[in-house]
Computed example of a mutant assay.
Amino acid sequence: MFGFIPPALTPILMLFASNVFMTFAWYGHLKHKSTPLLIAILVSWGIALFEYCLAVPANRLGSAVYSTAELKTMQEVITLLVFAGFSVLWLKEPLGWNHLVGFAFIALGAWFIFQKW
């Protein structure tokens, strides 16, 4: 699809972009709690459409290079990375050492998924 980007990298970039949209769809409204819930739902749904437009083809393209378990693992690790940045930069919520240790354990689990034993 994107001839100038290696096939193994294309789904990763698309999943990263889709996660930015989804994180804003799910959590962006928390910075605007005075907005009526129905409006937050409708805006979030609209944002999520862009996420689907990236995530579905990312998984379709990625399945040519990665197993389903590897794609799902990538998705979860990318989600945590995007959420950590979002939490600090958008919501102004600090990450503590316990969050970092938990994320490190998840990264270790991801490492095991990608091993060919």
Rank of each mutant, 00 (worst) to 15 (best):
L100G: 10
G28C: 03
P36M: 08
L37I: 14
F103W: 11
L95W: 09
G85W: 05
F105G: 12
A8H: 15
V65W: 12
L54F: 08
S34G: 09
G109A: 01
A104V: 13
G46Q: 02
V77Q: 03
A17P: 00
W117S: 14
P94G: 13
I113L: 01
M14A: 12
R60I: 12
K72L: 14
P57A: 04
S44N: 03
V56P: 07
A84E: 03
M22Q: 13
V56C: 05
Q115T: 08
F24N: 02
M1K: 12
A104E: 08
L91S: 03
P36W: 03
I47N: 02
N19V: 04
S34W: 06
W111L: 09
L61V: 01
S67V: 00
M74D: 06
M14Q: 10
L71M: 06
L61C: 02
W26P: 05
G3R: 11
A17D: 01
A17H: 01
W97N: 12
L71H: 04
P57D: 04
W117H: 14
T68N: 12
T23C: 03
V88S: 00
L38E: 10
A48K: 05
T79C: 01
A40S: 15
L38Y: 10
L61Q: 09
H99G: 07
V56W: 13
F103V: 15
